[in-house]
């Protein structure tokens, strides 16, 4: 009896020669179709470290991750570790279910930050951990990556764009560059299991992309529609 090699869902450890490697075993849908099309496994990978490199931290990553976070938010907390600005609770919580938990950690030292990240990831209690680490060694990143291997936690570390030349253990490294028109340009710096692709532009951009509303409430009207209506146009 022959086994069809074209079977749609082979074993995760088996992949076609045309693929660069096995896709991640478990992913979280990104909510951005144009981005998902290029990511191996078509989503944010679990059990590894995801690294974002951006020239101005805070300007693009929140809107990029928000659709994914809205899916996992709930009883398991989502951690913001050392965010670049004070977070706005409504901005984060609005698209999430009412019982979602969000914790803001502001450790005093880098050692405490890394310790807290390690504990949060190892405990497996968190849905997602987002950390802004302007200064961190490759060794620390490697340990975080190891800690993430067993954890059912989405771990995203945001670092300065200048670090893109440094070595990193993260299997997925994305450069996020805010374009002149406010959109987010995603550079695929490193993608284990994927193929080299040109940078793409994620439509919408922060603040203007429609906020994914929870199923219970009605969707927000897009502010772009209001713009088209000509209201603030007179001001500009």
């Amino acid at each position: 009896m022959s086994v069809s090699v074209a079977s749609p869902a082979p074993h995760p450890a088996v992949w076609r020669a045309t693929q660069a490697g096995p896709p991640p075993s478990r992913v979280l849908a990104t909510g951005h179709p144009e981005l998902a099309a290029h990511l191996p496994g078509r989503g944010w990978p679990y059990h590894c470290l995801i690294e974002f490199l951006t020239p101005r931290p805070g300007r693009s990553e929140a809107s990029l991750l928000q659709p994914a976070l809205a899916q996992v938010a709930g009883n398991a907390p989502i951690l913001l570790v050392q965010p670049p600005h004070p977070p706005c609770a409504q901005g984060w919580l609005a698209p999430w279910p009412a019982d979602a938990r969000l914790w803001w950690l502001q450790p005093a030292t880098l050692a405490d930050t890394l310790w807290a990240l390690n504990q949060a990831v190892r405990s497996g209690a968190c849905a997602a951990v987002l950390a802004w680490l302007p200064e961190v060694t490759e060794l620390a990143l490697r340990r975080l990556h190891l800690a993430a291997q067993a954890a059912p936690t989405l771990l995203v570390v945001v670092r300065p764009w200048a670090c893109r030349r440094q070595n990193s253990p993260a299997p997925l490294r994305l450069g996020l560059l805010p374009g002149k028109a406010g959109e987010t340009e995603v550079h695929f710096l490193k993608m284990r299991g994927g193929r080299p692709v040109q940078p793409i532009v994620v439509a919408g951009g922060p603040g203007v992309a429609p906020v994914p509303a929870p199923a219970s409430s009605t969707a927000m009207p897009s502010p772009l529609a209001a713009l088209a209506g000509g209201g603030p146009g007179a001001l500009a």
Partner: peptide, 11 residues
């Protein structure tokens, strides 16, 4: 209340 709030709010 309009739900659109930015993720970062200055002190």
């Amino acid at each position: 209340m309009p739900a659109r709030r930015p993720p970062w709010l200055l002190d």
